[in-house]
Structure formats: C-alpha cells, structure tokens
C-alpha cells in the first residue's frame, strides 16, 4: 500500500472541505481525481504531502503515518523531521509550476538532491540532464524559468520532482494554468510516467486524459468522495446523478 487515508477531515474556518475521506492507493496505480471546483480535490492532495494539516483522521505513506490519532480521538504528535523524511517519497507538481525563478532550469532540478539528499553535484547534474532529456528539454538546461513557455515550465517542474526519486507523484491540476496548445506536451510526459508504472494521483479537469491514463477515477463533490471506479464505469455508466451532471457540463 502506497497511500492509505482513513476518515480524514479538514476545515478552513467554518468551511468543511474534506469530510471523512477514505482513500487507498496501490503501488503502480494511476488515480485521477475529478469533480467540480471547490470540491476539495486539491486540498486532499495537499493533505497527503502535509502542505495542509488534517483536523482528524489518519494518513499513512508506505505504512508510515504522517498523521494519526489515539483511541480517544486526540491527534498524536509526529516530529516534523520524521514527516519530512516520509513525505520525501512523494513528489508534487503544482498548477502554477512554482519553479525557483532565480535558478536556471538545471539548478532548479539539482537543488533538492544536493541540499536535501546531499548528493554530490556531478551526480545530481548527470541525473538532471537525464531527466531533462526525458521531458524533452535538454537544450533548456541553462535557461531561466522566465525564458521558457508554460508547458516547458511544467515539464521542468516534473523533472525537478522526479529528481528526488519519489515513489509516488502527486499532480495538482498540472495543465490548468496552460494555454490549450501547451496542454498536450505536459500530458504526454505524465502518460510516459504511467507507462513506467509510476504511482500517481492526478487532480485534473482533462476528462479525456483521465479516462485514458487512469486505473481508477475518484469523483469528489463538496468534500466527499461520491464514487470511485474504473474510468469506463465513471465515464460510461456513473451511478451518481451528480457525476452525470458534471460530465455533461465538461464534455
């Protein structure tokens, strides 16, 4: 089991964003999370790698808890550095790329391996060059993020996350900030990762892509998982009328 989330709840003030969410992710699985805006998809993803702290429930990454409660329902304290170590198994790609603007493409990728993993620089550079080749941007290694297109930025962001050799990749609407003609190049990189059996959780509004790439599709609405099924089932024959209504609007 790569990720196990049990009864997780999260509120922002009075807004109950995640309501008793349960989710399990197996090794090699590609899961798309779809649903209307504000349904809690991104928040769920952000809770899984501790960018947001859950209010209650339990989250395990490869068997190790990053959030847990005792029998009385009190949160158990887990040291920050332990959480940081566990969360290194997760790579994250953001909607707005979040590349480091003061560093070149290459420097963006080698930063964490050198600083966090204490990898020797030559090794990190070799790894970065290999990853840049993989996302088709070997010639952009010395460019600054401001000098490349959105699609290229997102591919660099993917390479940057992969440089930490994560077991699981989280994608938070990776193509939502892109011009339509640049969406394809990012999706094809993600598809290539799926072929390599990378475990992935993808929050997306690209329905055709979700259908093609996922083993399982999770539909969320107002903080709840409404249905979780194979793409065929969700897209052809969803049980819940809310899914049908959503898909009618999207397609």
């Amino acid at each position: 089991m790569m990720i196990k989330a049990e009864n997780i709840n999260k509120s922002f003030g009075k807004l109950h964003v995640l309501k008793n969410i349960n989710l399990e992710v197996q090794k090699g699985e590609v899961i798309s999370i779809i649903g209307p805006s504000g349904s809690g998809k991104s928040t769920l993803l952000r809770c899984l790698n501790y960018l947001e702290k859950i209010d209650s429930g339990r989250i395990e990454i490869e068997g190790e808890p990053i959030a847990a409660m005792d029998q009385q329902g009190q949160k158990i304290h887990i040291p920050e550095n332990q959480i940081r170590r566990i969360c290194r198994k997760l790579g994250m790609v953001f909607q707005s790329f979040n590349l480091f603007p003061h560093k070149t493409v290459l420097e963006n990728i080698i930063e964490a391996p050198i600083v966090v993993k204490k990898m020797p620089k030559e090794e990190a550079v070799a790894l970065a060059e290999e990853l840049l080749g993989k996302v088709g941007l070997a010639d952009k290694r010395d460019a600054y993020p401001s000098q490349i297109s959105g699609g290229q930025k997102q591919r660099v962001a993917i390479a940057r996350a992969l440089a930490m050799k994560p077991d699981i990749m989280l994608f938070d609407e990776p193509t939502s900030a892109l011009d339509p003609e640049l969406v394809g190049e990012v999706l094809s990189v993600i598809k290539a990762l799926a072929k390599e059996n990378m475990t992935m959780l993808i929050v997306t509004h690209e329905m055709a892509f979700a259908r093609e790439v996922s083993d399982r599709v999770v539909f969320m609405d107002s903080g709840e998982i409404i249905e979780e099924a194979t793409p065929e089932k969700i897209f052809k024959n969803p049980e819940h009328p809310r899914i049908r209504a959503f898909l009618d609007k999207m397609l």
């Binding site: 790698n49 501790y50 960018l51 940081r84 170590r85 969360c87 290194r88 997760l90 790579g91 994250m92 953001f94 707005s96 979040n98 590349l99 480091f100 930063e111 964490a112 966090v116 993993k117 940057r160 996350a161 930490m164």
Partner: peptide, 10 residues
C-alpha cells in the same frame, strides 16, 4: 508557492 515547492522537495 515558493515555500510549498521547497517543502514538497523535502
């Protein structure tokens, strides 16, 4: 987002 990216990278 810069803090989040750094945090997500460990």
């Amino acid at each position: 987002g810069q803090y989040e990216a750094a945090k997500a990278l460990g």
